[in-house]
Write a protein that binds this DNA or RNA. Structure first.
Lengths: 223, 223, 223, 223
DNA sequence: AATGAATGAGGGTTCATTCAT
DNA sequence: AATGAATGAACCCTCATTCAT
């Protein structure tokens, strides 16, 4: 089953036509992530979206096209969401980090969007054009976002003067890996060995904050 | 090019027979990681190993078989190496962590074995049998290994009483992600924006050690 | 050349769809009988039916499937025809035998269905599932059919009290062999040495009737 | 298991070399009959004969060659055996027929040679050269043999003046079919429905003799 | 707009045959 | 004489894509 973002309204002809592209993209994402791009048949995608093979080609010119549309559509939705959180935030930088990871990352983790990370890892080598898009639209903005929070914290004496790029990676890489894992090994292992991703993310941020937080003595106390 | 572990000796009939399986596995790993399993043709693997398609089938009964052999062979080589480091080590637990990450993980990262992580992520959903092997032979032993180091450090008062499973993941997930990245986006982006994996790993461990290390006051001073 | 049962109508898309399965079966029968199952390429079958390889697979899931469909389709057509003759017949049992052999068997002999006998002989060992179908749908009903005619003849005093199963085989085996021969040696030998199958069948029945017919003295004279 | 004509003597090197060709032919006959020519692998033949693939090629230049050797070798053995029976016989022509069918044909039926009939039927279309050999060496001599017995019987007033070619076929075709059946359907059907080939052959000959035998009144009584 | 029948290039796998040992 | 590793042509089957309806 595709996981439609909106509950399916009564499928009148008009509604259908409106909803088609999204339904096709949802179906494609699910199957590409599940079976891999090469092993997913266009017919399966169409069938999962309740359409026929021919219809799929009315919206997307080729399988490769469909892949790129899936990636773009999903990422474009999430990109600014992060920036919005930062913009809206008022509070310590530590709390902002907590906010970003627990709200933004965990929401992504819980949504089908998490599959896009697996999809990109799986398919960039075959479609390198994706990499530039992903780097400029996701990786760089993301690094900048987190990086700026760290820099502000350091400048404010709230954080230690750690190497910012390294800390960004130490913070973010486990999140990406978590998403990837969810759709690879995580989907296979029956024994979930009581691994709770939400708990881990909270623990992870706190652990890293332990490393980041400047010793109290040296801290500038916010008045 | 396959990356033979040993320079090819004069290819007499006998020598070839001995070396073939390894050459084929090396070629397969390279191509499976590069192009994905489904998009790699058996003939390409054979050609890269300097053999013909038919020869490949003399050693591996099917493409799936070849995939599993590639994974097993690579992992079985590295599994004990880690344990050996732990066993051989005499020093602080912090130094042991440094040793494990800088020696073991970076050696894996630099070798073709790093590709196995991508391969597993990419293909487990299609071949779920792999997951159990990987979990029991790699994931669990690995977690135990790092987990015990942390526990010893905590017991010795060297480390803070952090949540061990969380800390293990925070330490390890970036390493896995690094390996995966090397063979996906990392292989596509020309502008390596001066990202130095070795430097990152060292920085990552030190950052986490900042979080782990107990405040001096509370530390048991080793006489 | 396929031997279409009906001259091909204008090949519109719809008409084609209807006619395809039969065209494919006819082509397959011809080639399987001519070249043997294993030596016939699916592409040849498709080409002979004026279709492409892919199309063939739209109708039959595999080569083995195609073989079984060929056999079933041909036999199911002929099975009742024989019973119908028996049911419709009014006359002496000797005449009924003449009818069955000259009408039914010779029609089968002259049609492509004769090839099915060769096909079954050639392929049962490889696909033993065929044997049960053939036995229960063709062999047993056939034996019963002829056997009953003989029994009725014996009961009526028209025939001698011969061993029925033996006589059935003596009557029928040459017919089967004739069909087989037509598609094996018979198709190779140029010098047809004036062998006339129709004449032989008539002669064969009369010869066996000589053996079957009770001496006049002992015959019950039908009033 | 191949069915060697002679119990295998101690396989000393010398013995082996002598026996090899025969062992290979026996193995080939068995497998060709069982699985069909096209579906039998040269390696299987070699293995069944206890040799290696390479060795097989020392004796037979190709698979086709092997097929022809199998057929020739088997048939050449049996051809004169029939003639010998006729030559040696002293008695009524009816008894000679009984002799030929019960001794010669049943011995062939019981031996692996019976498979050659299936083999020829199965493969002539692919290797038409076989047909000429088979016709001139087996079919024609066979027909002549039986035909002459019938003619002598007719001339002697022992038999009715039936059409000789027809009667020959009515006599012989069931025998061939019996051999073919043994290696096709007969090998598949578990329920042998108590069909006894030996009994059938005796019954068949007697039935045909009923047809052949001239009414006593007209018979020339052999003094 | 929607369908699904048709196509044919592509790739996994088999196996007859060769030849160095 | 015997072996069996190596080859590559051949064939079954899949599936992205097209197009008549």
């Amino acid at each position: 089953m595709p996981i439609p973002r909106t509950p399916p309204p009564p499928p009148t002809r008009q509604r259908r036509k409106q909803a088609r592209p999204q339904e096709l993209l949802d179906a494609a994402l699910q199957l590409f992530v599940e079976r891999g791009f090469a092993s997913t048949r266009m017919e399966e995608v169409a069938a999962l979206a309740g359409a026929s093979k021919g219809t799929l080609y009315l919206y997307y010119a080729s399988k490769e096209d469909l892949l790129k549309a899936v990636i773009r559509e999903r990422l474009s939705h999430e990109i600014e969401a992060g920036a919005a959180i930062v913009a809206a935030h008022a509070g310590t930088n530590a709390d902002l980090l907590r906010e970003l990871f627990v709200h933004w990352w965990l929401r992504v983790y819980d949504s089908p969007t998490s599959g896009v990370f697996k999809l990109i890892i799986t398919e960039v080598r075959s479609f390198p054009e994706i990499s530039e898009y992903y780097r400029s639209e996701v990786v760089e903005p993301g690094k900048l976002l987190i990086g700026r929070v760290l820099e502000r914290g350091i400048a404010a004496g709230e954080f230690r003067a750690v190497d910012v790029p390294t800390a960004v990676q130490s913070l973010v890489l486990p999140m990406v890996m978590l998403c990837v894992h969810k759709h690879s090994l995580g989907a296979c292992l029956k024994v979930d060995d009581a691994f709770d991703p939400h708990a881990f993310v909270r623990g992870h941020v706190e652990l890293l904050l332990l490393a980041l937080t400047a010793p109290a003595a040296k801290r500038k106390i916010p008045a």
